[in-house]
Design a protein around this nucleic acid. Sequence first.
DNA 1: TGACGTCAAGATCCG
DNA 2: CGGATCTTGACGTCA
Length: 419
Amino acid sequence: MKIGYACLTEGVPHVRYKSCLLKNATPDHLMNLIDHNLKTLAKVLDYNIENNIRLFRITSDLIPFGSHPINTLAWQQLFSDSLAMIGQKAKDHGMRLTMHPGQYTVLNSPNEEVVKRAMLDLNYHCAVLDGLGLSPQHKMILHIGGIYGNKEAAMNRFIANFDRLDETVKQRLIIENDDKSYTVEDVLAISKQINIPVVFDNLHHAILHGDHLDGEIDLINRVKQTWKPEDGTQKIHYSEQAWNKKIGSHSETVAIDQFMAFYQRLNRHDIDIMLEVKDKNLSALKCIQATTKDLPKQALEKEWHRYQALVLEHSPEIFQQIQACLQEKKADAALPFYRFIEIALQQEVQAQNALKAAQMIWSAFQKQVSEKEQLQFEKEILKIEKGLSTVSMKRFLFRLAQHYELSEWQNAYYFKDIL
DNA sequence: TGACGTCAAGATCCG
DNA sequence: CGGATCTTGACGTCA
């Protein structure tokens, strides 16, 4: 079983993808952006490897305007070495990479121009995975598309247009149920015609059906039949509804108890779970650690170190409770640990607690700072006391952590909003 | 014609 | 001038 996350990272320094507006997309600029983005992807894979994350979706924005006529670069050739190196990283560590063309890539449109662009976009996504040198087990996920007043005709159009795709694209393509139009049953019916795997998405399923727990696991096991040996392990999407946001919005974080309940009902290990959640890698790490038997103690301690300042900023009380919890050194501390984290982060940041968090990080390099930095810190303190944003304090502290090469603190989740 | 979703670029405002 | 915050863009469907 692999658990993974989609596209972007939280709290990982120096990984930010770049893009540009259509009007600025000159070949020269695109070259620079692609070069930067590939370096970024390589760093993200390093992060994944280091943190034992073995399932990851690559952002569609890797190559800006990757399927747009404005991008005339032969990027697959120009960056073949770089792509091959990145792909080798993944292969060396058993990492499964996927891609997911967005909601605007519509293969079943009645508009032929839209279909042509969708085919080009699928070619682009496939070219990335091909360029990385990855097998067809590294998939591309697509939704079925629109209804256009006649669902049956729309489904048949999907089937007909699938047939027009390149063989390499067909081998990678998998299809997913959505939250508006196409149920798992619909997608299974299409799958039966074109013989490609189905991705079960739990939240979409819950939205299109009233009570989502009823028969959910049976359905997942039925969907497994669409995965052939050459497709690799069955993959599903897991997400939770964001409270107080509109139906279908992904939650800020995966609520660990809700996930564990699902995991236990699922009761399978021959399955890969892609999380779709705002806090990305943070939830992936959480779910991985919570489901790892005999998790080494240092894994949680490393995680705690990254959470410390962020937790302190939200709740000094829970900060203390977590310290106590970890000192007990019981086995299976992961669940209580993450429960505490979730509760802490729901608390609003008070100025006095923001000060405590800043002080904690400051104390790590207080001894080596210059007088000028001391004065700057005092200025930042005043800003927080006045009730101003903590952003500039965080930027200041992050710069210090970089300057004094305190890599541990650079990885603090405390900095995730300013990276 | 605007909402939808998503992210960063670009624009503008502010001290 | 630099940093903080607001607006725009790129895509297709549907009301």
